[in-house]
Structures are given as C-alpha cells and as structure tokens.
C-alpha cells in the first residue's frame, strides 16, 4: 500500500471528513485523557488533513484515548476526532496482524446506548 492509498484508507475507516475541521481545538479542550496523549486529539485531525502519516502511525496516544466520544459530541463542525484516532489504531493493529478480538468473545451485555465504536476500540486496547 503506498502513501496515498494508506491515507485514503485512514480517511475511509474514520468515516469522518477531517477537512471540515476549523481548528478551534474544542476536542482537545474537552479531552479527559489529554495529558496522557503524545499526539493530542486536534493533532490527529490536523495530521490527517496535512497527510502526516508517520506522526499518526507512530503515536502512542492511540492506546490512551478512552473512546469516551466527548470530542465527537462537542465538535461544532461535525468532525469526529475519536473516529480518526480509532482509524489510526485499526491501521496499526492490522499491520501487526494481531487482531486481538474474536466476534464470539464479545459478551452479550451490550446495550443499545453504548456506541459500537467504543466497544470495539476498548476491546482492541485491553486485549493486548
């Protein structure tokens, strides 16, 4: 996969249009895990827009994002920073070929209210 393809894939997995970001920083202003992250939520969006793939893929913050979705909830432009972080996380994990979770492992306690993405990302993180 070349650089362009990988970038396009990240955009596609995230399902959000990072170009809609108006650089207000509300995501990072709200983030409860901010101080744990080497790359901040707004930087994930900004790096995706400017194509800084290396910085995204080498970030440690993909394992400290809580997937609380506060940034998604509060973004005034309808961008979903947590989705970008999750997309990076997926890309990294796929490369390691260690897709840690199997569908049958998901316990049947899921309620309607929990965002699917939160579950999946939480499993990705804590199954390591």
């Amino acid at each position: 996969m070349d650089f362009k393809e990988e970038l396009a894939l990240l955009n596609r997995i995230s399902g959000t249009d990072a170009k809609k970001c108006m650089k207000c920083g509300k995501c990072s202003g709200r983030c409860p895990a901010y101080h744990e992250m080497d790359v901040k939520p707004h930087q994930f969006v900004s790096y995706l827009v400017s194509g800084k793939l290396e910085k995204l893929l080498s970030s440690k913050a993909i394992y400290s994002c809580l997937s609380c979705m506060a940034c998604v909830e509060r973004c005034p432009r309808g961008v979903a920073p947590a989705n970008v972080i999750e997309a990076v996380r997926q890309s990294v994990i796929r490369k390691q070929e260690g897709n840690a979770i199997k569908a049958e492992d998901i316990p049947p306690i899921i309620t309607e209210e929990i965002p699917q993405q939160l579950l999946v990302s939480a499993y990705r993180k804590y199954n390591k």
Binding site: G25, K26, C27, S28, G29, R30, H42, A70, R74, P76
Partner: peptide
C-alpha cells in the same frame, strides 16, 4: 487561541477548561 471544552464549578470557582492551541 482555542476553544473551551467544559466549564465546571469547583468550590465556588468556575473552572474553564480549554485548549491553548
């Protein structure tokens, strides 16, 4: 330069948490 994520009350002070981009 940055946006506020939340405002909460802590012991009578309004804590304004936001980004300094």
């Amino acid at each position: 330069k940055g946006m506020v994520g939340k405002v909460y009350n802590e012991n009578g002070k309004l804590m304004v948490q936001g980004s300094d981009l």
